[in-house]
Amino acid sequence: MTTPAGQGRAPEGGAGTQPRSVLRITDLVAGYGGGDVLREVSLQVPEGGITCVVGPNGAGKSTLLAAVSGLLRPRLGSIELDGQDLAGLSPRQVLRLGVVQVPQNHSLFRDMTVRENIELGGYILADRALTARRAAAVFDLFPDIAGWAGKKAGSLSGGQQRLVEFARALMLEPRLLLLDEPSMGLAPKILRTVFDAVRQMNATGTTILLVEQNARAGLRLSSHGVVMESGRVRLSGTGREVLENPEIGALYLGGAVSAG
């Protein structure tokens, strides 16, 4: 067992004094039927920041999030949220502890209205008054969404659906928000809106663990960066450190990606 979060030393590769970690993953091994995708992954998510995980396809970024949110049961290792081990809990139990995931593929209930979708974000609250209060707060944060409340979720554009997914995730006032490639399939122009929304959610105090294919834009947005490769952590540090690491820049960030 590792020491409880908050008293730990700085992680390897970390720079200077670290804020308290919300999430501490230690030697995590996990995979689907065909074998291990994650091979002893260790990383920390500092409180109040945005931690961005980048890496090539198949590095295990999405698998990492699936293991944290309970969709995938890890084989070995620990995933501690504020010192409590999440490994092996069901998605529902993980939600109750305050970890909410927005998956990579569009996950709105297409035949339901935007309002119904957002209310369903508070499904485990099972309290109408609380659900209504939270929904009102979410509509305050994203005023655009209030205008779509009566529309079928399936009729929204890709970018709009992303924002509604964020809003739905905020219904539980998450301790940790997991975002799996929010830029997936979006036009560059809309990308900015989506990243602005990520920044905005972070500004209201939500700690975010972000997985991003668009590495440059993701890291620029983030306080911390983690580079994964073939199921292992290759490097971690502040967002800027990772962005400016020449080796990593050449390997994963791709010189061709324009400054956004």
Binding site: L71, R92, P103, D111, G121, Y123
Partner: peptide, 16 residues
């Protein structure tokens, strides 16, 4: 209805 439309999303909002 949520499970009918997207099972993974349903699990991720805490539906058993």
């Amino acid at each position: 209805r949520a499970t009918m439309q997207d099972e993974t999303a349903a699990r991720l909002i805490g539906i058993d």
